[in-house]
Design a protein around this nucleic acid. Structure first.
Length: 282
DNA sequence: CGATGCCCCTGAGAGC
DNA sequence: TGCTCTCAGGGGCATC
């Protein structure tokens, strides 16, 4: 679930549960995920009130009233499960602790948020809110693709002179923050640009098209509640459904949705699958 | 500095 | 049923 649209969907699901609420009890069930948790994490969370829940790139940021921000990354398999709250038409009682439930936050009022992460590529840290820009995981991030700093011109500037595939540049979080494999593939398809093209060969006009495609696919995906691969669910128990709108991702061998006679192909670039239509992406 | 692999970890699904 | 193999939405880090 962990590209920008999925993280934003998680943020929206958690916001009513966390924002303005106090953490009555925090439980940390193992000492680390990708990295060790900060010392005394459970104690430092207990009693804190969540002022706001924000997102930067693929990071969730929970600002606490003590002056720190809880930084959370979902990695590849991280999930935030909500229970003990009535959301929509459903009431979710607390389930028994499950395998890979690593951090549990019990809020005043009875809601519980459980961070479950099977592969443990996720991470959590605490950092002064006023100094977040200097956190090692946040300091180097490029512009938000849905913000004003991201445009064709800035993207083009970051691609000129680079002898690496455009696919790799879009995945580089220093160039633009929040894209992952799915939405890079989909944006390149929308822009009719092959993932194999060298970044330095992308023209200014194509960069404009590409930046617009990135924005459009992210907005469409957010509107759909993100993409649900495997059995991922949003915090409220609903499935995202943007996976039904994939043009190329995971569709090797299928006809291109443009009905241009092309068949979706898969190539491996820097260890990851790229899906594209050779007929319309050049 | 830029580009390329490797690696962290578990689970699902395919093939035999 | 059970084994082995491949692959997976990320990204830091070592190496050339």
């Amino acid at each position: 679930m962990p590209e920008l649209p999925e993280v934003e969907t998680v943020r929206r699901g958690l916001e009513p549960v966390l924002a303005g609420q106090r953490i009555a009890r925090a439980e940390v069930r193992r000492p680390d995920l990708r990295w060790p948790f900060p010392p005394g994490l459970a104690a430092r969370l207990t009693g804190a009130r969540v002022l706001a829940l924000r997102r930067r790139s693929k990071y969730l940021l929970a600002d606490l009233d003590g002056g720190d921000t809880l930084i959370a990354h979902l990695g590849m398999s991280g999930r935030m499960l909500v229970s003990g709250a009535t959301l929509g038409a459903f009431h979710h009682p607390h389930p028994a602790p499950a395998r890979h439930d690593h951090v549990v936050l019990d809020m005043d009022g009875g809601a519980r948020v459980t961070f479950n992460d099977a592969r443990r590529f996720g991470a959590m840290d605490l950092w002064p809110t006023a100094d977040l820009g200097r956190h090692r995981l946040l300091a180097g991030l490029g512009p938000e693709p849905l913000g004003n700093e991201f445009a064709g011109a800035t993207l083009h500037a970051r691609m000129t002179g680079r002898f690496t595939p455009v696919k790799a540049v879009l995945l580089d979080q220093r160039v633009v923050a929040g894209l992952g494999n799915i939405y890079v593939c989909e944006a390149l398809w929308r822009a009719r640009i092959s993932p194999l093209r060298l970044a330095g060969d992308v023209t200014a006009a194509e960069a404009d098209t590409l930046a617009a495609a990135v924005r459009a696919v992210l907005l469409d995906a957010i509107a759909a509640g993100g993409s649900s691969l495997k059995d991922y669910r949003q915090a409220d128990g609903e499935l995202g459904y943007f996976q039904h709108s994939f043009a190329v991702y995971g569709r090797e061998g299928a006809p291109c949705p443009r009905a241009d006679g092309g068949t979706v192909a898969r190539v491996v670039q820097s260890g990851r699958s790229s899906f594209f239509c050779p007929a319309c992406q050049h």
